[in-house]
Simulated scan of single mutants.
Amino acid sequence: MEKGDYALASYRNLKPGEYITFGTYPQSVDGKELAITWRVLQNSGSQLLVLSEYILDCKRYHGKRADLTWRDCMDISWQDCDLREWLNHEFYNTAFNASEKQLIKTTLCTDNGKGCPDTEDKVFLLSVAEINDVSETRGKDWRRALGTDYAKAKKPDGCSLYVYDKTNKDNYVIIDGKEAGCSWWWLRTQGNKPSRAFFVGTGCSARSYGNNSIDGYGIRPALYLDLSEME
């Protein structure tokens, strides 16, 4: 699917749990760009909240050096972390063309952590409050996530997506009759210490103790699409 080749008129009728394709991003080991599949989380009639169905990449919440370990985590807020900068610059410019960018709203992000300032973002990670709100009506199964081959590949910054490979069957999904291990993915809310962030585990639970220099957690970008721009 080429960028911009989507049925805009049909977006207004989408229901939570349905899917759209929008933008492109590398998804294979060799970096081939493919259409991004997004899960609709909310449709207010004027805007869509969507979340990437797959984990698209693997990044630290904060820190870029390849030699960083979990012990190198530092106090940081969502406002100042490297992952927020990456989402709103490198990812945003890689994934979307000019026409698509016109449809992406600037979102006021709250629930960034105790004492952490609100932010305005084009692309963001979900917060703890947002995943809990969605789960009240949609359950928790949507939280289980698989990574693309690109997300699993080792990157120059040392990051590569952790894929569950132990014995707990709740941490797998069945794809084409075969078990596939799920992966962890970041939330934007600061964790139980200023050097930590919340993440979603392989069993769907939100955890507060992700050291922000960990190199094995994935990214499921989220954004709001402005339906008024689709007239």
Rank of each mutant, 00 (worst) to 15 (best):
D5A: 06
D5L: 04
Y6T: 03
Y6W: 15
A9P: 01
S10D: 10
R12I: 12
N13V: 07
L14H: 01
K15W: 14
K15Y: 15
G17K: 02
G17V: 10
E18D: 15
T21S: 13
T21Q: 12
F22P: 13
G23N: 05
T24H: 15
T24I: 13
Q27P: 13
S28V: 10
K32A: 14
A35N: 04
A35S: 13
R39L: 15
V40C: 09
Q42T: 12
S44F: 08
L49E: 02
V50T: 13
L51T: 07
S52F: 02
E53D: 15
I55M: 03
I55W: 11
L56D: 06
D57L: 10
D57K: 05
K59M: 14
H62I: 11
K64Q: 13
L68F: 15
L68C: 10
L68V: 07
M74A: 11
M74V: 15
S77R: 06
W78S: 01
D82S: 12
L83T: 12
R84L: 14
E85G: 06
L87M: 11
F96Y: 14
A98F: 04
S99L: 05
E100Q: 07
E100A: 04
Q102L: 12
L103H: 11
L103Q: 06
T106Q: 05
T106V: 12
T107R: 00
C116T: 02
C116F: 09
P117R: 00
P117H: 04
P117A: 04
D118Q: 06
T119I: 11
T119E: 10
E120R: 06
K122C: 05
V123D: 11
F124D: 01
F124H: 05
F124K: 01
L126A: 06
L126V: 02
L126S: 00
A129M: 11
I131Q: 03
I131H: 02
G139Y: 04
A151I: 12
A153S: 02
K155F: 07
P156T: 04
D157C: 06
V163Y: 08
D165W: 05
T167H: 06
K169Q: 12
I174G: 00
D176R: 03
E179H: 03
A180P: 07
C182Y: 00
W184F: 15
W185G: 00
T189I: 01
G191L: 13
N192M: 08
R196D: 13
F199C: 10
F199T: 03
S208A: 14
Y209D: 15
G210D: 08
Y224M: 12
Y224N: 07
Y224E: 11
L227Y: 14
S228N: 03
E229K: 12
E231F: 04
